[in-house]
């Protein structure tokens, strides 16, 4: 931040972390910072082309490892029949609902155990020991309690989402700078104001990290839930592809999972960057 001391920046401009740097060669679009994200695409594209080529010369057996074009065709026909939309919709619904439930509970409990020492002493040991149970171990119990339908699936996803959000939020609250809290005390903020004006913004970075890894686990557990028994959803396509011997269906499902997972994470990441424009960190300056 070399220029920042001579020119104050309005807030709107400080939000653009990736503003073009004057010194760096801005001549070619590939090197200007607006297009830097293209770099991330280079390797995947090369791999896809190689895969397609190798499939065409028969290097990969088509009945086990179909070409990308076959996979795309599968996705396309699923789209045309309207099936794909339904599968995506139900899977997305499960992830979102499970995520909201899990992160909601984690937010309440994490904030509580982070802020109050008493709550920490009572609740955290229990939650930490629950965390050590591999989440999939809950499956039989959930199915017994809630049946094979939606509730048990949502519960599993919620459990997966819960722990990263809980842990990050709790330690985030605990690590809020004592010195900033003291400033709040000097100005006589009451507990509620202190939470709202100091703890909440100070905890936000850790919280967003927690939400993002929680969402990642949510996607992981929706696959598990749908593999174990579903008649719809992207996870069901995996099972369907396996039982009917259609690897292109499995690959299509995997690709869609990758795309959707990335997309939802990007949404969270963007919201995070918007909220954390004030951060002074190495990652933002590159």
């Amino acid at each position: 931040m070399s220029q920042s001391q001579t020119s104050p920046r309005s807030r709107s401009t400080t939000r653009h972390h990736n503003r073009p740097q004057p010194g760096k060669a801005a001549s070619h679009p590939l090197f200007s910072s607006r297009w830097l994200w293209i770099r991330g695409l280079v390797l995947p594209v090369v791999c896809l082309i190689g895969w397609e080529g190798l499939s065409h010369i028969g290097f990969f057996p088509p009945n086990l490892f179909p070409a990308p074009s076959t996979v795309v065709q599968t996705i396309w026909s699923l789209t045309l029949s309207g099936e794909l939309f339904q599968h995506i919709a139900i899977t997305l619904y499960r992830v979102v609902v499970g995520f909201v439930i899990g992160s909601g509970a984690a937010t309440l409990l994490g904030a509580l155990t982070g802020y109050s020492r008493l709550a920490h002493q009572f609740l955290d040991p229990l939650l930490q020991s629950l965390r050590n149970i591999p989440s999939l171990a809950w499956v039989p119990l959930f199915i017994l309690w809630m049946g094979i339908q939606e509730p048990s699936k949502l519960a599993l996803i919620a459990v997966g989402v819960f722990f990263p959000v809980y842990l990050n939020l709790m330690s985030g609250v605990q690590q809020v700078d004592r010195k900033l809290v003291e400033v709040g005390k000097v100005y006589r903020l009451n507990s509620l104001q202190l939470i709202q004006r100091v703890f909440l913004p100070a905890t936000l970075p850790a919280y967003i990290v927690g939400l993002r890894s929680g969402l990642g686990l949510g996607w992981m557990f929706v696959v598990a839930a749908e593999i174990m028994g579903a008649s719809q959803g992207l996870g069901y396509l995996l099972v369907d592809g396996q039982t009917t011997g259609r690897p292109e269906l499995i690959l299509a499902s995997i690709l869609l999972f990758a795309g959707l997972g990335k997309l939802t994470d990007a949404v969270l990441a963007t919201v995070g960057h918007r909220l954390l424009y004030w951060q002074d960190s190495y990652g933002l300056q590159r």
């Binding site: 931040m1 920042s4 104050p8 004030w278």
Partner: peptide, 8 residues
């Protein structure tokens, strides 16, 4: 500097 952020 009213609109500057502390890191600046």
């Amino acid at each position: 500097f009213a609109q500057a952020l502390p890191r600046q």
